[in-house]
């Protein structure tokens, strides 16, 4: 009856190649798991549990987990609660900008099935429709201890190499893009070129391309560099 008994059956891989390289891989994964940067971006109510989790009382830093201000340098995207549809666009933009490997953690009820906002027209109900999620932490909101337990589980999974959902985004990009298009319209487009990235990582899968990516190509505007601007006019001195 209790579902927690469902354990993922460990896949025993036939190890081959240079044994030293394997050791090196293990070492890299170990180091990666001990130095995680959480993107300093919070969505819903659950964000309130993060300051205590980070600071001295629960002290996430003893596990090597720290907040990080920029998505390009962050490893973990914490979705701390309900995601309004407007926010979801930003979340996707942010996620795509993060460098791989990257991990998504869904916190609170809302990221699983809508939570107490289940009737709201303005919030997304299932986070995993729009991006692959590595881990969920139950609660409304979960206590800092639960957050830390979750992150420890994530660390274990990184160390063992099981936390690889980021590859899924490349391999099944068409699915995720389709859900995004359903919500945001056919002309939905992000500045990140996922397909090229997928090729780069050699993660082109059967689900990378499909009808939705074809739709994207039809609507895609060439990306332009943003003009750097400060205030109204940089030439005029600020009074």
């Amino acid at each position: 009856m209790v579902m927690s008994r469902i354990q993922k059956i460990p896949v025993v891989e036939e190890k081959k190649g240079n044994p030293l390289a394997r050791v090196f891989d293990d070492l890299v994964r170990f180091c990666r798991s001990r130095s995680l940067f959480i993107l300093h971006y919070c969505t819903g109510c659950g964000a309130i549990e993060l300051p205590p989790a980070m600071t001295s009382r629960f002290d996430m830093e003893r596990l090597g987990i720290q907040p990080m201000v920029s998505p390009r340098q962050a490893d973990i995207l914490l979705i701390t609660g309900y995601v309004s549809i407007k926010t979801l666009k930003r979340v996707i933009l942010t996620y795509e900008q993060m460098g791989s490997p990257k991990y998504v953690v869904g916190i609170c009820s809302c990221t699983v099935n809508g939570g107490m906002y289940w009737q709201s027209y303005a919030t997304a109900k299932k986070l995993d429709e729009y991006m692959p999620v590595d881990l969920y932490i139950a609660g409304c909101m979960p206590r800092p201890e639960a957050v830390i337990s979750g992150l420890q589980k994530l660390m274990d999974r990184i160390k063992s190499g099981e936390a690889d959902s980021w590859q899924d985004y490349y391999q099944n990009y068409d699915y995720y893009l389709g859900n995004q298009q359903k919500l945001f319209g056919e002309d939905w487009q992000t500045p990140t070129d996922i397909i090229t990235e997928a090729k780069h990582y050699e993660l082109m899968g059967e689900g990378t391309l499909g009808e939705h990516t074809r739709l994207l190509e039809q609507h895609q505007n060439p990306l332009e560099a943003l003009e750097m601007r400060l205030g109204h006019n940089i030439k005029e001195p600020i009074e």
Binding site: D128, E145, K153
Partner: peptide, 17 residues
């Protein structure tokens, strides 16, 4: 009891009797 974490594959564990 207040700690429950699961991966995407174990999401059914969010629905309990």
């Amino acid at each position: 009891e207040y700690v429950h974490t699961c991966t995407q594959e174990e999401i059914d564990s969010y629905f309990i009797l």
